[in-house]
């Protein structure tokens, strides 16, 4: 009994849900970023599963682009977090409700 595409898609759905829960529960901006990475990886997993299922390499190309965008997003997001945390150490996202920086 080999794992089928359905199994991978179910795993991706569970991982996406876990990332969403973490994003809503945690208040540390860094950990929230990690949860976004979890959700992106869940989508990558389902892309690759579909690429195998339909024997179409386009799915893997999409994963490549998702990885590039995720890397750029992490760089910009961590830059923003650094510039915020430098002014207000120990800030959680609840403290950052206003756009004063």
């Amino acid at each position: 009994m080999n794992p089928t595409t359905t199994w991978y898609l179910v795993l991706a759905a569970v991982l996406f849900g876990l990332g969403a829960i973490g994003l809503m529960v945690r208040r540390n901006p860094l950990v929230m970023f990690m949860c976004i990475e979890l959700m992106l990886n869940a989508v990558n997993l389902s892309f690759v599963a579909f690429a195998r299922s339909f024997a179409d390499i386009d799915g893997q190309t999409a994963v490549f682009f998702v990885m590039v965008v995720a890397a750029a997003e992490v760089v910009v997001g961590l830059g923003i977090i650094i510039s915020i945390m430098r002014r207000r150490p120990q800030a959680t996202v609840d403290d950052l409700a206003e756009l004063k920086g």
């Binding site: 359905t6 991706a12 759905a13 996406f16 829960i21 299922s53 339909f54």
Partner: peptide
């Protein structure tokens, strides 16, 4: 948050299980 996240997963899983027959062959 647990309800919303779990509901999200459950919806996607339900969608996957519903269309599992139309997924391509598993032995490519």
């Amino acid at each position: 948050a647990v309800v919303v996240g779990g509901g999200l997963s459950a919806l996607v899983i339900a969608a996957v299980l519903r269309v599992r027959d139309t997924l391509g062959s598993d032995e490519v």
